[in-house]
Every structure is written in C-alpha cells, then in structure tokens.
C-alpha cells in the first residue's frame, strides 16, 4: 500500500477512516485489539456491525444525527467493521461495505471540496484524490479542473450522454467539473481502494466478544441468494437503469417504470424486483412494493402496464442503442427473433 503524506486531522480521519493514517492514529492513542475485546466496548462492536448491516442493504451508514460527534468512535467502528468482515471472509459483504463506505466518503469529499474551494484547507480533499488516484485536481474560478485524459479514463464507464467529453466544458487540455462531478468520477476507484485496503490487512486473532457478530455476518450474507437475476442479455437501456441503481444514483421515474415493466414482462415477480431499488437514494420499501404491484396490475384496478417503446425511451434520454437494437421498437423484443410488425 502506498504511504500517504496527507497529515489528516482527527475529524478528517473520522470522515476518511480508510486512510492509512487512521491506524497510526489509533496506535498512537494506545488502542489495541485486546482492549477492544473488553465487554465495556460492546457498543463499539454493535456500531461496527451496524455499519456493515446498513452497507449490505445497499444504504450508506451515517452516525446518529448525521454529525461526527465522536470521531474516535467513527474511526474505531470502521476498523472493527473491517476486522469483522475479514473474519467472516465473505466477498459480497466486503464489496458492498467498500461501496457503501466509498459513497459515505464521497459525500464528505464533496462537502470538503465545495466548502473550501476558496480556502487553504482544500489541500486534504485534493491530496486524497491525487495521492490515492493519481488525478491532479485544480481550482480555477470556482470550478474544478482535471486533465482530459484523466477524465476520459473514468468517464467512459458512465453511459449518460452528459458524461461524454463532447458535453463537457473543455479547454487547454482540461475538463471543468463541479465538486459533485469531480467526486462522482472517482467513486468506483474509491470503492476499489477501500476494498484493497481491507484485503491488505492481515487478520489478527480476534477477541471472543467479536465472534457472535462474525457468525451473524455469515447468516446475513446467506440472504443475498435471492437477489434478482441480472442477465447479460438485457437491452442496454435496461442494463443502464440497473447500473444507475446499483451505483446508488437517482434513476428518474421513467427509468424505474422501464425497469419494472420490462422485468415484469420477462416473468420476474414484484418480490424479485423490489430489491433492485434498494440502493436508490429515496428508497422506501413499502412504496416501492406498492408501485410495483400497481404496475404489474396485481393491485388496484388491475391495469397491467406495458413496457414503454424505444421511441418513448429515446425521447426520455433513456435509450442507449447498440447495433443489436436495429429493427426493434420495444425493449421487450431485444435479443428475440423479430416478429412481424404489421397488424
């Protein structure tokens, strides 16, 4: 692991507990694992476990009240969570945890960029980005700028038209971004960085007080077995909608409608589909289920909604046509033999 020269303060470590400095800080303060095994620390283990549970459901952990009132607890609960995950040894959990922690850090990173953009303390967020991901971000007239090549290497993974280079402000080899966009661009790498950090840590012998929660994690992971089947033969528009949700971004109503009607038409049930929406920032299980049932015609007046046409989706900028889409007018037809179109 690369050594950082960030010199973060304790509040910074509470926001970014995956930085190598977090471990040093705890060591300096004299914490060790043996101590944390003392029953007095049970609330910490619970907090750490909670952090994983929240992440596994696709949501982002926030301390109660949304404030970092007890930075030591924030840092410690992250470290203990990592130890629990290492002990459980289940990759899907680690992946979900890394992604959720990346999104948590992303919010802070964005706030730090935004709040400090005319001040000196911009150093830390910019340093994190450059030390960890090798991207130099500069501030220019209230905007953030990065090199075109750095931009392209990340933005090609996004399908939305607005991320195409042609739809960005480009000049003198630099792309102009908002703080939100800057951070968005490195989300995947942040997740990968965190998961690499977790991989790199060697598991110490764990205190007995941790063991029951490790067992609970194994049980928890078992529940992912009934996740919806995401098939590679879905049309690009549907794949895109799923990706947006998986990244925890907001998918407009029309996109959710497409996803629901498409998957229902392909024979999936509302129960199977609902978990897909879990990562949405405004997820509410009851409402989602109600809407899905409404769309499927199994509740209310019983009208069954059809999957929208390619034309409609195109006008809503939800179409990401590929050559295999030629000749079809509805995503349902994707990958199937073309039917006779005339009545």
């Amino acid at each position: 692991m690369k050594r950082c020269v960030l010199q973060p303060g304790i509040m910074d470590l509470a926001k970014y507990p995956f930085l190598a400095e977090a471990g040093e800080y705890l060591r300096d303060k004299g914490f060790n694992l043996e101590q944390l095994g003392h029953p007095d620390w049970a609330p910490l283990v619970e907090k750490a476990y909670g952090r994983i549970v929240v992440a596994s459901s696709g949501q982002v952990y926030h301390p109660e009240g949304g404030r970092l009132e007890n930075p030591d607890m924030e840092i410690l609960s992250f470290i203990v969570a990592v130890i629990l995950l290492k002990a459980a040894g289940i990759n899907t959990l680690t992946r979900r945890f890394s992604l959720a922690e990346a999104r948590r850090a992303e919010r802070f990173l964005q706030q730090d960029l935004w709040a400090n953009k005319d001040k000196k303390n911009l150093d830390l967020p910019l340093k994190i980005i450059s030390e960890l991901f090798g991207i130099r971000v500069h501030v220019e007239d209230d905007e953030f700028v990065i090199k075109v090549a750095d931009y392209l290497q990340r933005a090609v993974h996004f399908h939305e038209k607005e991320w195409k280079l042609v739809n960005r402000r480009v000049g003198a080899g630099l792309v102009h971004l908002t703080s939100h966009e800057t951070v968005r661009l490195i989300r995947t790498e942040l997740g990968q960085y965190i998961s690499a950090r977790i991989q790199s840590i060697s598991l110490p012998p764990i205190p007995d007080t941790f063991k029951s929660r490790v067992g609970d994690l194994v049980t928890l992971a078992g529940r992912f077995a009934d996740a919806p089947v995401v098939s590679s033969d879905y049309p690009p528009c549907v794949k895109h909608a799923i990706e947006v949700l998986e990244k925890g971004e907001n998918l407009p109503h029309s996109g959710r409608f497409l996803l629901a009607t498409y998957l229902l038409a392909r024979g999936q049930t509302a129960d199977q589909i609902a978990p897909l929406f879990k990562n949405a920032p405004d997820y509410n299980e009851r409402i989602t289920r109600y809407q899905l049932e409404h769309i499927s015609g199994s509740s209310g007046r019983g009208t069954k909604y059809q999957c929208p046409s390619c034309d409609k989706l195109r006008s809503e900028s939800l179409c990401f046509k590929v050559p295999e889409c030629d000749g079809i007018i509805n995503p349902i037809q994707f990958g199937r033999k073309r039917g006779t179109a005339n009545a």
Binding site: L152, A155, K161, L165, V166, N167
Partner: peptide, 15 residues
C-alpha cells in the same frame, strides 16, 4: 470518446 469530441458527435442541447 475523444474521437466523438473531435467529430462533434453526440452533443446534446443541454450542454
């Protein structure tokens, strides 16, 4: 994507 920039392909009015 760089070529699309050069050819001015895929520009949307919102930009």
């Amino acid at each position: 994507d760089l070529v699309d920039y050069i050819m001015f392909n895929g520009a949307i009015p919102e930009t």
